[in-house]
Amino acid sequence: MNNTDRSLLWTNNAAASGRIDWKLLDRLVHDPDEAQASALSERRYREMVGAYQRFRGRTGK
């Protein structure tokens, strides 16, 4: 199992068991002073937001 697989397994398990603070995570993703401020480029930020939205969709949150 590679690191990406381990990360996906951990995040899916964390979501399923209620260990994710969705309010905090949403703020970190969308607040202009957080992820957007530290993104390498606007394109990379949009990719991260898309991945976050897909993750939320898979978890039903």
Score class of each variant (00 low, 15 high):
residue 1 M to I: 13
residue 1 M to P: 06
residue 2 N to Q: 11
residue 2 N to V: 11
residue 3 N to H: 12
residue 3 N to V: 14
residue 4 T to A: 15
residue 4 T to N: 15
residue 4 T to F: 15
residue 5 D to I: 09
residue 5 D to T: 10
residue 6 R to I: 11
residue 8 L to V: 07
residue 8 L to W: 08
residue 9 L to C: 08
residue 9 L to R: 08
residue 9 L to W: 09
residue 10 W to G: 03
residue 11 T to S: 06
residue 11 T to N: 06
residue 11 T to R: 04
residue 11 T to Y: 03
residue 11 T to W: 03
residue 12 N to G: 04
residue 13 N to Q: 15
residue 13 N to L: 15
residue 14 A to H: 06
residue 14 A to M: 04
residue 14 A to W: 03
residue 15 A to V: 01
residue 16 A to L: 08
residue 17 S to D: 14
residue 17 S to V: 13
residue 18 G to C: 00
residue 18 G to A: 00
residue 19 R to V: 08
residue 19 R to Q: 15
residue 20 I to G: 03
residue 20 I to S: 04
residue 20 I to N: 03
residue 21 D to R: 05
residue 22 W to V: 06
residue 22 W to F: 09
residue 22 W to A: 05
residue 22 W to R: 03
residue 23 K to C: 02
residue 23 K to P: 01
residue 23 K to F: 02
residue 26 D to S: 08
residue 26 D to W: 04
residue 27 R to D: 04
residue 27 R to L: 02
residue 27 R to E: 03
residue 27 R to H: 04
residue 28 L to M: 15
residue 28 L to T: 10
residue 29 V to M: 09
residue 30 H to D: 01
residue 30 H to P: 00
residue 30 H to E: 01
residue 31 D to F: 12
residue 32 P to D: 01
residue 32 P to Q: 00
residue 34 E to P: 00
residue 34 E to K: 01
residue 34 E to F: 00
residue 34 E to A: 00
residue 34 E to R: 00
residue 36 Q to T: 07
residue 37 A to V: 01
residue 38 S to Q: 13
residue 38 S to D: 14
residue 38 S to L: 14
residue 38 S to G: 14
residue 39 A to K: 01
residue 39 A to N: 01
residue 39 A to S: 02
residue 40 L to S: 10
residue 41 S to A: 00
residue 41 S to W: 00
residue 42 E to D: 14
residue 42 E to M: 13
residue 44 R to S: 13
residue 45 Y to V: 03
residue 45 Y to T: 01
residue 45 Y to R: 02
residue 48 M to S: 13
residue 48 M to F: 12
residue 48 M to W: 06
residue 49 V to E: 05
residue 49 V to F: 05
residue 50 G to I: 08
residue 50 G to K: 12
residue 50 G to P: 05
residue 52 Y to S: 07
residue 53 Q to K: 13
residue 53 Q to N: 13
residue 54 R to A: 13
residue 54 R to K: 14
residue 55 F to K: 03
residue 55 F to C: 03
residue 56 R to K: 05
residue 56 R to W: 01
residue 57 G to Q: 07
residue 57 G to W: 03
residue 58 R to S: 12
residue 58 R to D: 12
residue 58 R to N: 14
residue 60 G to L: 03
